[in-house]
Amino acid sequence: MFSVDWWSLGLPLAYITVLLGSLITFSSLYRKRKANASATLAPWFPQHLSKDIYLSLLHLEPEPGQEKPPVVPDSIIRAALLRRAVEDIRRIIQIRSAKPACTALLQRGSVGDDLNERFLRAEKDMEDELRDVVQEANALSEGWGNVIFQSANEIAANTAFRKSLNEIQAKAPAEKEWWEKRRAFIQTEFMKELEEGSTYGDGAVAEGVKKKSKK
C-alpha cells in the first residue's frame, strides 16, 4: 500500500495555482486597461449619419397619442441600408488611401502611436461594419449581401462624377456674361480705332482692319 504524502503533492499544486492566478489577474487587468485606453481615443471618422438614420428607422418611437410605432415600409429600410453602404464605400476608400501614408509616417516617427492606434481601430471597426451591413442585406432580401457593395460602389462613383459635371456646367452663365461684356468692349474698341483711322487717312484704316482680321 502506498500512502499519499499530501504535503509534497500540495506544495507544487499550490505553486501552480498561485502562478496561474497571478498571470490571469495580470492579463485581465492589462486587457481592461488597454480597452479603456482605446475607448477614450478620438474616432477617426465623424458621425456615421446614414447608419444612424437606418438604425433610427428600425427603432422608431410611437407618435404621441398612439401606442404602436409607425410602420416603416421595407423599401425605405432597403434604401436606407443602401445609403449606409455608400457611406461605407467612401470610408473604405479613405482608409485605403490613407494607409500607406500612415505607415510611412509612423516608421519615420513623424506621428505618434496614438494616431496609429486610432487608425487600426478605424480599420477594425470598418470590417465589423461591413460584416454587419452584409448580414442586414441578406436578412432584408436573400442574396443581396453579395451585391450590395457593388451597387454602393457604383452609386458612390456616379454621385461624385455627376457632382463634378454639375460644377463645370454651373460655370457657364458667369462665363457667358463675361464674354458678352468682353465682346462689347472689343467692338467699341474696334469702332474707335476705325474712327481714329478715318481722321488720319486711309493707311490707318487699313491697319485697323488688319488687326481685326488676325482673328
Partner: peptide
C-alpha cells in the same frame, strides 16, 4: 470611441401618405 452596438437616435419621422 463609441460602442459599436450603440447609435444616436435621430429625430426622424415618416410621412404616413
Amino acid at each position: 470611441m463609441e460602442d459599436p452596438e450603440s447609435f444616436t437616435l435621430l429625430p426622424v419621422s415618416i410621412d404616413p401618405t
